[in-house]
Simulated assay, not measured.
Amino acid sequence: MKDNQNESELIKAKVVDINNHVIDFISIDYKLLAKVIHQATFLFVIEKQTFRIFCHKRSQSKQYQPGTFSTCFTGIVLESEDYRQCAKRKLIQETGLDLELTYLNSFYFESKKNKIWGQIFYTFYDGQIINFIQDPKEVEEIELMSYKEVVIREQNGEIFTPESIQALHFLNKRVLRQ
Rank of each mutant, 00 (worst) to 15 (best):
E47D: 11
I133G: 03
D17L: 02
A40G: 12
L33H: 01
I165H: 02
Q63W: 01
P162H: 02
H21M: 10
M1H: 02
K62Y: 09
P66F: 04
Q134W: 01
L32D: 02
S8Y: 08
Q166Y: 11
Y122V: 00
Q60R: 12
K115N: 03
K148I: 09
C55G: 02
N4P: 12
N19M: 11
P162F: 07
D3K: 15
I120D: 03
Q178W: 14
S59Y: 07
E79R: 01
K113W: 09
L43R: 03
G96E: 06
C55Y: 00
N131Y: 06
E9R: 14
L176Q: 11
I11Y: 02
L78D: 08
E163Q: 13
M145E: 10
F69H: 08
L171H: 02
T68F: 07
E81V: 08
Q65R: 14
P66L: 05
V36L: 04
S70C: 10
Q60A: 13
C72E: 05
K115D: 00
I165N: 07
I116V: 08
K115S: 07
Q134T: 15
L99T: 09
P136Y: 06
T41P: 08
I23D: 07
E9P: 09
I152D: 12
E47V: 03
V150L: 05
E110V: 05
Q134N: 13
V151L: 11
N4H: 14
L168W: 00
I11A: 00
K14W: 05
Y108E: 15
Q134E: 14
N20S: 07
H21Y: 13
Q178Y: 11
V77S: 01
T50F: 04
R84Y: 14
Q63N: 15
L99Y: 11
Q119E: 10
K62T: 12
N114V: 13
T74H: 04
I133K: 04
V139P: 03
S111L: 06
I165S: 00
R89W: 06
R52K: 15
D135C: 05
E154C: 11
F107T: 08
G157D: 04
L99A: 05
Q39R: 04
F73D: 08
K113L: 14
G75T: 11
D29E: 04
L78A: 09
S27T: 05
I142S: 01
T95I: 01
A40M: 15
I116F: 00
E149Y: 01
I133E: 04
P136A: 03
T95S: 13
L101R: 07
K90F: 12
F42N: 02
E138H: 11
A167H: 01
D135S: 05
K90V: 15
T50Y: 03
K115Y: 00
L99C: 00
I133T: 09
D24V: 00
T102C: 06
K112M: 13
K31S: 00
L10G: 14
E163H: 15
V151M: 15
